[in-house]
């Protein structure tokens, strides 16, 4: 049917649009992830690029499979690519590619499409995919290779090209992550190298400096809500400062807590996912502080060295409740009358 040019537009308010559509918002975050991905290639070599690509491919494939009969194909909004990128950046560099691919499939398949597509999922898809991989392949997912160092960017970890469904045949040179060292050997990594990022870990979690800069840019562009990272990082800092002041030999320095593990990455990219975070400003504070508290509890007292992923997923589950209790008062409604 021919498009008819309308002279008089009859529709309800709002009439002003800020021009930001879902694909544009996705693209913003994708651009922001590119420097992180490049830095990970610098630190861990070309393997990291392969892992990111295969996680993204897995996600895009499932998105296409589930939606191939729909007219408005959601592949165009780029959310599958974004989820794949986010997932890929939280994986260890030497992870076999088939596992990364499977993670992408689970992230989009079970994390998004079965809920009804973009905007309907309760949990962060990328973290759901990561949680699935961590539960499924605990050894491969916690084998953090040391940064490649002098071997050159094009050197590939031997575990990257493992046959699908097969185990990693060779032992790769693995380095314990700073949080592992803290948890199991009581050895604290220098905060300075954490800040720059030349430590073992997943790609996205290594350089706190870069993530802070990117987070700042995204906040200035209003792509992410500043309250969530502020509440998450602030509560982690305050809580770990309290523990540090109680016993400075047992508990780590609060700066160590801030710059280690996936906290920065989660604060900038995972927790701020608009679908799975609260809508209200007050809710954002509750959400962030809840995540910070769970993260500190898991790191210091739990059985796992890192807890940001579970903190985000757990607080994701509470988002509908948070939205309900943090509704702002509508103008003219719900005022308390005197003497009642």
């Amino acid at each position: 049917m021919e498009k008819q040019k309308q002279k008089l537009i009859v529709q309800a308010a709002p009439y002003l649009s800020h021009g930001i559509t879902a694909p544009k918002a996705m693209l913003d975050i994708i651009y922001a992830l590119i420097p992180v991905a490049l830095l990970s290639v610098w630190f861990f070599g070309i393997s990291s690029l392969w892992v990111i690509i295969s996680a993204t491919l897995g996600g895009v494939l499932v998105e296409w499979l589930f939606n191939r009969e729909r007219a408005d194909n959601p592949l165009k909004d780029g959310s599958a690519i974004l989820t794949g990128l986010l997932l890929g950046l939280t994986l260890p560099a030497g992870l076999p590619l088939w596992m990364a691919f499977l993670g992408g499939v689970v992230a989009i398949g079970l994390g998004k499409t079965v809920w009804g597509g973009l905007g309907n999922n309760l949990f962060n898809p990328a973290l759901l995919g990561r949680a699935f991989l961590l539960g499924n392949f605990p050894i491969a997912m916690t084998t953090w290779p040391a940064p490649i160092g002098d071997a050159g960017i094009f050197s590939v970890y031997p575990s990257t090209f493992t046959w699908p469904f097969m185990q990693v045949a060779t032992d790769s040179v693995s380095g314990a992550t700073p949080l592992n060292l803290m948890k199991f050997q009581h050895q604290f990594t220098d905060v300075g190298s954490l800040f720059i990022g030349n430590v073992s870990g997943s790609y996205g979690e290594t350089s706190a400096l870069l993530l802070l800069v990117i987070g700042g840019v995204l906040i200035l562009r209003r792509s992410i809500d500043w309250r969530i990272p502020a509440a998450l990082l602030g509560s982690v800092f305050v809580l770990s400062l309290i523990f540090f002041m109680v016993d400075s030999r047992l508990y780590p320095n609060p700066f160590f807590m801030l710059f280690s593990g996936g906290l920065m990455f989660a604060a900038v990219f995972m927790a701020t996912d608009p679908v799975t975070s609260p809508l209200t400003p007050k809710g954002a504070w509750i959400f962030g502080i809840g995540m910070g508290a769970i993260t500190v509890l898991i790191r210091l007292f739990g059985g796992l060295p890192e807890g940001v992923m579970y903190a985000v997923l757990l607080m994701n589950a509470t988002v509908p409740l948070i939205d309900k209790i943090s509704q702002p008062r509508a103008f003219g409604h719900g005022l308390k009358k005197d003497g009642q």
Binding site: P96, F132, G135, N136, F137, P138, A140, F165, M166, Q167, V168, A169
Partner: peptide, 15 residues
């Protein structure tokens, strides 16, 4: 699948 099969640990657990 032979001895090099990588088991999907989560599948035999409740999840």
């Amino acid at each position: 699948f032979g001895e090099h099969y990588e088991p999907w640990v989560i599948m035999v657990l409740p999840p």
